[in-house]
């Protein structure tokens, strides 16, 4: 049974006479509980795909389907990039945001919020405002907010892109442990191969202009994984090199595409 089913999805942005095919004929099926990473060069439409799934953008053609397991559960929640934490709400109110917007019972909001504050280790910071938090802590808030909302699927838009290496590793491991507890379906955007290898059950490799899926790579490394496992696995090293080659070619082609002779 597929959790997310995307069929023939295309998105064309039109600006005056010019148009840009951000996505072209995307077919994708994601199973319940899968952790899928969308990997591609910048401008390959991966963010657009996520924004369509989160209903912030409408597709030009094609359909998306997210299967509902329980009534009253929101279909999806997004973990935004670092700026997505609302600065005028405290850590606690940020985590409770989704539940409050759906007007859940105050008691329920309180218990769930407390639970997720605890899970991301922010319970003693719950009364602080985001300006007082580090980048890593802000992303913990963002992750807790999305999980606390208990959606059918979670969408993550390069949530760790702005973090330094050490913080990134810590947060990746924390995310995996929360994910393993909840068994949610996750669609995660990244441009980091290492990140995709560590997190994903499947890597969907995209190419740009128009954005299409070029490869669907299963990652069979057993969980729980560590970065050491990823680095020492021969199989994953080969995948890394393949993906790296693809991305290099893409970036190069784009550069030639943009050079003055071809413009």
């Amino acid at each position: 049974m597929s959790k997310i089913l995307i069929k023939g999805l295309s998105k064309r942005f039109i600006k005056r006479e010019k148009y840009l095919d951000a996505l072209k004929d995307i077919h994708l099926e994601i199973k319940e509980g899968e952790f899928v990473c969308l990997l591609g060069p910048s401008g390959c439409g991966k963010s657009t795909l996520l924004r369509i799934l989160s209903q912030l953008e409408t597709p030009t053609s094609g359909t998306i389907q997210i299967s509902q397991s329980q009534k009253n559960l929101p279909l999806q929640s997004m973990v935004f990039q670092e700026k997505g934490v609302i600065p005028w709400l405290t850590v606690e109110d940020n985590v409770a945001f989704g539940l409050k917007m759906r007007h859940e019972h105050p008691k329920k909001i309180k218990t769930i919020t407390k639970e997720y504050l605890y899970k991301v280790g922010l319970q003693q910071y719950k009364h602080l405002y985001p300006k007082e938090l580090s980048g890593g802590m802000k992303q913990r808030v963002s992750i807790a907010r999305a999980f606390a909302n208990n959606p059918e699927i979670l969408l993550m838009d390069e949530p760790f892109a702005a973090l330094d290496e050490q913080n990134k590793f810590i947060l990746q491991e924390e995310l995996l442990s929360i994910w393993q507890e909840t068994k949610k379906t996750v669609l995660f955007i990244t441009h980091s191969i290492d990140e995709a290898l560590l997190l994903a059950d499947r890597i969907i490799l995209m190419s740009s202009q128009p954005g299409t899926i070029v490869k669907d790579i299963p990652i069979s490394l057993p969980r729980p994984r560590t970065i050491e496992d990823v680095r020492s696995s021969k199989e994953l090293t080969q995948i890394f090199i393949d993906v790296w080659d693809h991305l290099q070619r893409e970036v190069k082609e784009n550069r030639e595409h943009l050079s003055p002779e071809n413009a």
Partner: peptide, 14 residues
């Protein structure tokens, strides 16, 4: 910032 509008929309604020 537009991102807070997106957050509100994504979390179904009325």
């Amino acid at each position: 910032d537009k991102i807070y509008m997106d957050v509100a929309k994504n979390y179904q604020a009325n």
